[in-house]
Amino acid sequence: MLQITVPKSNILLPEYSGALLEGVTYNKSNNSLLWVEIEGATLHRYFFDTAEHQVLSSNLPGDSFGTLGLTTNDDKVVLGNRTGVVAADFSTQEITPIVSYPPNSRTRSNDGKIDPHGNLIVGTMSDFPYETAAEGSVFRLNSRSLKLETWKTNTTIANGLGWSPDLTKFYWTDSGSKQVYVYDYDEKSDQISNEKVFFDVRSITSDPSSAPDGMCVSEKGNIFVAVFNQAAVLKLNSSGEVVTRFNIPAPRITCVTIGGKNGDEMFVTTAGDHGRGTKSEYEGEDLGGHLFWYKLEESESETQFIWGGDV
């Protein structure tokens, strides 16, 4: 296994940090990076060409943002918020409801992605300040009919997901189980089957607070997994073997994507401390809450899809 240390000088925006960053997404259309700050219910966009940092905030008390998906309009994204899915528009600063989850005052949106058919797959989990329990679900929101279908129930922390480049495999994470799962994916029917364990974080650590978090699948079929409380992003091959460990100067790594104009830049979100977990396997200055980037040796662009409905 190759080990690479990302220096603390690789903070993308030194003047910015948040409590719990997630959902990092690169938009090649306008060379921008987007992410959410969950607890602050803010959506962020940074333009590399102009260094402009835009922020869109929810006006709903107690709201949170868990994930985002790109649309055909660069100014508009779909967002998982505390109670459902909304559309957010940077040009107007407006947030418009799309659909509500089945009523549950204890849960909120967490990670999600747009699927190959343009639908949104999004998971929920226990909201703050409740202790995490097996009360989450994973939903598929049809982008054209806006029908919300339940795919999984009784999940703990529905997290990173993605599809193999040939669209024959689907990956999904339940952080509470410490595992990333792989399924057979039928592109025609948009259905999954044959659940198997793809990666178990306990294969690299005995720390009970460590868990796989957000992830992305590259166009080369490699899987990049953010590992919470391990200060690391792991690059796995399609067999689930750890090829490279990227050591990040922040213990709580939440999400990762690969983008940039040449598809060779890794972007990583992290979380601040706030008493989450331990640092038993982390040494060094804690820069949690910052965004990090790293230049890869070759192109590994994330396999990415766009919302298929109206915006």
Rank of each mutant, 00 (worst) to 15 (best):
A158W: 11
E195R: 12
K279E: 08
W151F: 13
G136L: 05
F199C: 09
G308V: 06
I114A: 01
I114W: 05
S145A: 05
L68W: 06
S29K: 15
P102L: 08
E22C: 07
K8V: 06
N110C: 04
A134N: 14
V180T: 15
K28M: 09
P249Y: 11
G136H: 03
Y294T: 10
T50S: 15
P129N: 07
R202G: 06
I4K: 15
T150P: 01
E37W: 07
V197T: 15
V6I: 15
C216S: 11
Y101V: 08
K295G: 00
D200L: 13
G118S: 06
S137Y: 15
E300I: 05
G112Y: 02
L20Y: 14
L13Q: 08
E195S: 06
E187H: 15
V122S: 06
G136T: 07
L56N: 12
T124Q: 13
V24L: 11
G80S: 04
G136Q: 08
N142S: 13
K188Q: 12
Y46W: 13
D174K: 10
Q54H: 15
D186I: 02
V243R: 09
W163R: 08
L2V: 10
E265Q: 14
R144K: 15
L167Q: 12
G284V: 07
Y16I: 15
S100D: 13
V24D: 10
T254H: 00
G289M: 07
G18E: 07
T173G: 02
G176I: 09
V217H: 02
N229F: 02
E187M: 07
E131W: 03
E149N: 13
V85T: 00
R106M: 13
V268P: 00
P14Q: 04
K295Q: 15
N159F: 03
N142C: 12
N142G: 07
